[in-house]
């Protein structure tokens, strides 16, 4: 077989020409772009699967920031370990503003109570840009259980079963704390996510579950489940008639919060531009409507406040679980 030399030369030339195009728009290796920010697309990573509330929030914010800054903001889903995987990856990226992460508070405040040291994520290697919204948990009871209030719960003589949305979730923490503080006996039954937990309550497979408000509201409105208590600081505007655990005298403020963050070390001007873009997006009517539809309460606080609040919550939950001898997981 002949070795067509000409072809080989052509091939090699073509290959090297291709290699020379390395500078063109690839996403391999760190590209420290100096100059005006933003100089290219901004990747917004989400640590949850596509379609969930965190993902939808990310997409809304991404679209808004894209409009404001004039560059594409693609959303990339990297689910795994409740967001730990994605957060650690982004925290290790260069802090030039081209990589953002949408944070779930539970990863910082609750998950550390349930996982090992090396899986724990802290805000120390992140620069938080802005807090976004709050998503509350509500405890609902099945119609058949006959429970309509916290008093009913306390008076009950049966051992009740309580569904949670998994280990290390706000749902599990809130319920565990409430039961411990109110001295109620119950069996915790974990499910994979909110949906099966809610279904189980609807069918009276378990008597109670703590679910995120957005998921539970349609069933509450339809009268299929009865709201017992919410775990927010103040009464939730979407469920004004339901008391908070705090009101009832129990120290269980557990909510899910979301914030936008970047790797630590953002230059001041870059951060300012991002904060501005986010603020403008949050002010838009479409964002407000989005929050309404998904039953999110806006919590648009500055990055510094986010860090303070979340770290405070993390400490508080740690103290509470130790005080009441609660173990979210058996490590």
């Amino acid at each position: 077989m002949n070795f067509p030399r000409r072809r080989a030369v052509l091939g090699v030339t073509a290959a090297s020409a291709l290699l020379a195009l390395t500078a063109c728009g690839g996403n391999v290796g760190s590209d420290s772009s100096s100059g005006d920010f933003p100089s290219g697309p901004i990747t917004l990573t989400v640590g949850q699967a596509a379609g969930g509330s965190t993902d939808l929030i990310a997409r809304t914010m991404g679209a808004g920031i894209s409009d404001q800054l004039g560059v594409p903001v693609p959303v990339v889903n990297k689910p795994g370990a409740n967001g730990a995987l994605a957060t650690k990856e982004v925290a290790a990226m260069p802090a030039d503003g081209s990589n953002l992460i949408l944070l779930n508070a539970s990863l910082i405040t609750i998950t550390p109570l349930a996982v090992s040291e090396d899986e724990t994520v802290t805000l120390d290697n992140l620069d938080v840009i802005k807090g976004l919204s709050q998503d509350d948990y509500v405890m609902v009871a099945s119609k058949e259980s006959g429970i309509t209030s916290l008093d009913d719960l306390k008076k009950s003589t049966k051992t009740l079963t309580f569904g949670t949305t998994g280990v290390g979730t706000g749902s599990q923490l809130a319920q565990a704390l409430l039961l411990a503080q109110a001295d109620i006996k119950g069996t915790e039954v974990p499910f994979d996510s909110g949906s099966p937990a809610l279904t189980a309550v609807m069918g009276n497979q378990v008597q109670l579950s703590t679910i995120q408000l957005g998921e539970a509201k349609p069933q509450i409105d339809a009268g299929k489940v009865v709201p017992v208590v919410v775990f927010s600081d103040e009464r939730n505007t979407f469920l004004p008639d339901v008391p908070t655990a705090l009101e009832e005298g129990y120290d269980v403020p557990v909510s899910q919060y979301r914030a936008l963050a970047a790797p630590k070390g953002l230059p001041e001007d870059v951060k300012a531009k991002l904060v501005d873009a986010v603020d403008k997006t949050l002010a838009e009517d479409s964002t407000k409507a989005f929050n309404e539809k998904n039953l999110l309460t806006p919590k648009e606080i500055s990055g510094e406040e986010v860090v303070k609040q979340w770290n405070d919550l993390a400490t508080k939950y740690k103290d509470l679980t130790e005080e009441y001898d609660i173990e979210l997981s058996s490590k």
């Binding site: 370990a81 995987l85 899986e119 280990v167 974990p190 499910f191």
Partner: peptide, 20 residues
């Protein structure tokens, strides 16, 4: 992956990618 009942990591050999 992580056992949803107890949070224990089963057969993940310390790899975060295996956590789920």
């Amino acid at each position: 992956g992580r056992d949803i009942f107890t949070g224990a990591e089963r057969f993940t050999f310390g790899n975060l990618g295996m956590a789920d």
